[in-house]
Structure formats: C-alpha cells, structure tokens
C-alpha cells in the first residue's frame, strides 16, 4: 500500500476487533499515517484490500465509509471561528444529504458525545478560544458523533502536554471498552503505547516486524533493530508496565 509511485508498505495484514485498542508504532516515515489513510478508505491500497465485515472499504461511497470508520486527526488548523458545538455536529455529515440540516436527533447525539468527552461546557465557545487538549477532545467528540464502529487516531497526542496526553488516551481507551469500538492508534510515544494499547504492531522497512501485546512487542532487541539505536526496557515503577528508554 502507498501513494501513486511509491510503495510505503508491503504485505501488511492487520485485523482490528471491537473493544480493542491497537497501536501502530515504528520509526518516522515507516508508514503509520499511511495505514491510517488506507484504513479510512481515503487511499485505496495498490493491491489487496481493506474490508469491514467482508466489504471492501474504498469501493463504498464516502458517506457509507464514514458511517463505518471515523478518524480523529491532529487538532491543528481547525476553523477558528466555528463554535465547538458546530465542530461536533460535523460528525453527523455521513447521515445527512447535501441539502439537509441537522435534526433534533443529530443534536442529541452530538450533545451525548460532548458529555462523554467532557466538552459540553464549552459548546458555545469558539474553537480559537480552546486549548490544544480541549480541541483534541472536541475532535474525539466529533468522531463519536459519527457513531461508527471503528475509530482511527493519527498521533492524537502530538501537541499535548503530559496531563492532556493521559486524559485523551485514557478517554480513548475507556470509550473503546464502553462503546465496544475497534480503535487503531498511530503513536510515536512508546510509553503511552505501553500504557494504553491492548495490542501493538511494530513496523519497520515497510513490513510488519511484530504483532502482539505491549510486553511482547516492546522488546529491547526488536525495538533496537527497528529504530537503529540501543534501547532498554524496564518495568515502570508506577504500574509495572514496560518503560522504554534510549540507551545511547
């Protein structure tokens, strides 16, 4: 899979299941974002297919696709003078014709999504008045309003501080369990992966190196080979989960 003249990933076979957070890790440029784009159906694979319950995703109409898969992008360049509520309402797009406007039902779903993401109190505020963490939660609310069984997240914590990183990923994990969502998470930060993912996929050189639970994949030798530096993994003094450290 990849772009017109460039094959970024080869022979990747992944399966995500409801209620599970699957994290994709790997060095820069390895194709984490490409996986998200292909899995969202925006980018058709050069060979093979992306299917949901047996249906090929990129052959569906955009709205049918969006009813099955929602994407949480990085919270950058959002239209600054949109009200927070309007941003979340955009999640209802796949259920509306071009000429339709949101119904009471759509507003109710958006309000619920905002309640779940703890953004309801900022509903009337403008995007430009919100912090990065608030904007990121707003995008998760928008994805929830989309009410699709699969949620893809591309580096949702890239611009967040420690506290907000935890809040956002904790929220994603809780939602996966409560709403039985299948979550695919592209993430740089291996220690966040260790804490929030159920399963991890390690990519390097365009192929899958390892799939398994965090303890299995966050292995010093595997990581050293993939990232090209010496790496130590120790149990975290907080919760005993693997803690990844550079040993250079």
């Amino acid at each position: 899979m990849g772009y017109r003249d460039l094959t970024v990933l080869r022979g990747v076979t992944l399966e995500i299941v409801p209620g599970e957070v699957l994290a994709v890790i790997g060095p820069n440029g390895v194709g984490k974002s490409t996986i998200v784009r292909v899995a969202s159906g925006r980018l058709p694979p050069q060979s093979g297919r992306v299917g949901i319950n047996g249906r090929a995703l990129h052959e569906l109409s955009p709205s049918a696709r969006a009813q099955l898969v929602c994407v949480v992008p990085q919270a950058t360049n959002l239209p600054p003078t949109f009200r927070a509520m309007d941003v979340v309402l955009m999640g209802r797009t796949p259920y509306l014709g071009w000429f339709e406007t949101e119904s009471q039902e759509d507003r109710k779903l958006a309000t619920e999504a905002m309640a779940l993401t703890d953004t309801l109190d900022m509903a009337e505020r403008l995007v430009e008045e919100l912090s990065g963490g608030e904007q990121q939660r707003l995008l998760i609310a928008r994805a929830l309003a989309q009410a699709s069984p699969i949620m893809l997240l591309d580096e949702p914590t890239a611009h967040l501080d420690l506290r907000h990183q935890d809040r956002v990923l904790g929220l994603v994990r809780r939602l996966a369990k409560e709403k039985d969502l299948a979550v695919l998470l592209a993430l740089h930060d291996l220690n966040l992966v260790s804490r929030y993912a159920d399963r991890v996929v390690l990519l390097s050189d365009g192929v899958v190196r390892q799939v398994g639970d965090p303890e299995q994949v966050l292995n010093p030798d595997l990581l050293a080979e993939a990232y090209g530096i010496r790496i130590d993994v120790v149990p975290s003094p907080v919760d005993g989960k693997p803690l990844v450290l550079s040993a250079e």
Partner: peptide, 19 residues
Amino acid sequence: RPLDVLQFGDEQAGQLGLD
C-alpha cells in the same frame, strides 16, 4: 453545510463522509 465541512480541509471532509 458542505462548505462548512470543507473548512476542515479536504482530508477531514472526506473522512467525515463528504464526497
């Protein structure tokens, strides 16, 4: 409404289900 959705950029608009 479609124009509002487009304000999030082509990529997001597509992911939101807009043709």
